[in-house]
Design a protein around this nucleic acid. Sequence first.
DNA 1: CGCGCGATTGTA
DNA 2: ACAATCGCGCGT
Length: 170
Amino acid sequence: MEKITRDFFNDIVINVAQGLLGQTLVFGSHKAMILETEAYGGADDPASHAFKYTTRSRIMFGPPGISYVYFIYGMYHCLNVVTEAEGTPSAVLIRSMKLLTPPYHLLDGPGKICREIGITKNHNGIDLTTQNHFYIEKGVSITKFEKTPRIGISKGVDKLWRFRCIEELN
DNA sequence: CGCGCGATTGTA
DNA sequence: ACAATCGCGCGT
């Protein structure tokens, strides 16, 4: 299959968030189709970790195509992919996927995704465009998806930056 | 160094 | 509606 290149991620974050729907995440022996994403920006987005530059968010200020994995609520990890040019902070949070490898079920929620396939902070800062065990490959074309406010945030609720496939959800 | 909170989830 | 659970970010 065809690995997605840096050019794809070097685009405005909402384009990448939409474009990732239907693509396939490869992580070791696991494969899964991306069904739901959220876009997070920089100084213009108070909901984003990159609203300010910190030791944690600095990865979002770096080059596109790099993984951003953070630990939250004392027990969950969340997987993102950095987008836009270096110096323009943004990332796409992967919220739900359908496993294409056993046990083939729906991974509905960013914490569940990382728990099930074993993504941790050890996988933070990895260049997904140069790896052979952790990358995103071209999947199916998605036409029907909805745009809604992002989940679990208190600021920036006005932005419709959550993208979710309408079918495929079973 | 101490403290409050969070891009979540499972249970009640 | 709420507890679990702890690293991060910020103030002192």
